[in-house]
């Protein structure tokens, strides 16, 4: 065993000695990423509806927001919130400062949420617009109101069709969350950097971090494969059945 370990030019012992640190890093990465995805996703729903509508005020407003947040790097957005807002006396003295804007976690969370909300909005907007026109007409003809159409027909159909594209957004967000390590947070990469700074050993920290990210992506990919099987099966042709005749 020792002979095998000696072949690997890594200090495995050091990694294992810091294993719990890395696990805390995983926890930090996961809670930041998934809370931001959750809140950003919820924000994206009304914004996507606005973007898919012809509302003369809401549509351009949301468009402006998504344009800015998709047009600038997440790192810059995070810095603006974490370093930028604190420059204003009014912000430092407001009620928002003490529990929220003075905290690195909250700043990262806010930046990630706003960022993923922008991407998710445009993604969901595309899915809403691509809802087959005939299905919407059938709902209109049945007597569904606009709200009922949205809730019963358009959104359930759009969410399902958005699943494959959204899996990319989830993975991008996970990878983007490394930005947290630049504002003092001990996420997975943060622990890797700490190890490097402390022992001057780059590979131990960074390879471990890379491996952990890779494992999380693997789990996300599996989750989405399961979602697609369960929620997109309705669109897949079934071989043994009579083929649906195209219109």
């Amino acid at each position: 065993m020792q002979a095998v370990l000696d072949l690997i030019p890594l200090d495995i012992g050091l990694i294992l000695a810091n294993f719990d640190r890395f696990m805390w890093g995983v926890w930090m990465t996961l809670n930041l990423t998934f809370l931001a995805l959750l809140c950003g996703g919820l924000l994206a729903i009304p914004m996507a509806i606005a973007r898919a509508s012809r509302h003369p005020v809401l549509n351009p407003m949301v468009w402006g927001y998504t344009y800015v947040f998709r047009g600038t790097p997440l790192l810059v957005q995070t810095f603006l919130i974490y370093f930028g807002l604190g420059q204003f006396e009014a912000v430092r003295e407001s009620w928002l400062w003490d529990p929220i804007l003075s905290s690195a976690w909250w700043c990262a969370f806010i930046a990630f949420t706003l960022n993923t909300a922008a991407y998710s909005t445009e993604l969901l907007r595309g899915a809403i617009i691509d809802t087959p026109k005939g299905e919407v007409e059938a709902a209109v003809a049945t007597g569904h109101s606009y709200a009922a159409r949205m809730r019963r027909i358009i959104l359930p159909s759009a969410f399902r069709r958005a699943i494959p594209a959204y899996s990319n957004e989830v993975i991008f967000m996970l990878h983007g969350s490394v930005v947290a390590s630049t504002i003092t947070l001990q996420d997975i990469l943060g622990v890797g950097r700490w190890l490097n700074g402390r022992y001057y050993l780059a590979y131990e920290g960074f390879i471990t971090a890379a491996l952990l990210y890779f494992l999380i992506v693997l789990a996300i990919t599996r989750l989405f494969r399961w979602l697609e099987r369960n929620y997109l099966g309705h669109l897949a042709p079934r071989d043994s059945e009579a083929p649906a005749s195209p219109q």
Binding site: E137, A141, P156, S157, L235
Partner: peptide
């Protein structure tokens, strides 16, 4: 909307809700 609910329509392209 009330009138439409009393006037059912059958379409050329069926227009069933595919996710249901």
């Amino acid at each position: 909307e009330r009138m439409r609910s009393r006037l059912a329509m059958v379409f050329q392209g069926f227009n069933l809700w595919t996710h249901m």
